[in-house]
């Protein structure tokens, strides 16, 4: 009887060893996938894989949306924009981001110039750099030029 118990405990020892190792590696994989939610993990939000190309991250009340940026990305309240922001403080056609000579430019389209880049009011079309913060009315968009693979799981 004690022999059986001992044998069971011996196997349990090895099993627990592996339970921990598998757990550690699972956590590692989980963390790799969690890249992107890191930024703003809202309740019940699916984990967002970072798109490979340039994109905008819309940060809004504990949630986030990732929007791809193409050759021309219009931002505004109207439905014909690529990025639709249904807010009172956003103009019908507020701003646009376009690709020229391999660089993304941000241009303000509002009459009174209500677009900010990293906190400063825009003064004519401006080149966007990776990680720039674009404020359109009261909405904030983060511009990311490169995929976040290198900095996976960090912050």
């Amino acid at each position: 009887m004690t022999g059986l118990v001992l044998m069971a405990l011996r196997y349990l020892f090895l099993v627990l060893f592996y339970v921990l190792i598998i757990w550690l590696f699972r956590h590692l994989i989980w963390e790799m996938r969690a890249v992107g939610v890191r930024v703003v993990a809202g309740e019940g939000q699916p984990e967002l894989p970072a798109p490979p190309g340039p994109h905008l991250v819309l940060v809004e009340g504990g949630g986030c949306r990732v929007i791809r940026v193409g050759a021309m990305t219009r931002i505004g309240r109207g439905p014909d924009n690529e990025v639709v922001l249904p807010r009172a403080d956003v103009w019908e056609r507020h701003a646009r981001i376009y690709l020229r000579n391999g660089q993304y430019w941000l241009e303000d389209l509002t009459p009174n110039g209500d677009t900010r880049l990293n906190g400063l009011l825009l003064d004519g079309p401006t080149v966007l750099a990776d990680g720039d913060r674009v404020e359109v009315g009261g909405a904030t968009l983060l511009f990311e030029r490169w995929p976040r693979t290198v900095r996976a799981g960090t912050a």
Partner: peptide, 25 residues
């Protein structure tokens, strides 16, 4: 922290134009 969360090394990439608007960068 917004910029830093993703790319700590981005400060070295200055744009060719519009430097005036980029003081906050």
């Amino acid at each position: 922290t917004a910029g830093r969360l993703f790319h700590p090394h981005r400060a070295s990439r200055l744009p060719p134009g519009g430097a005036g608007a980029r003081a906050g960068g």
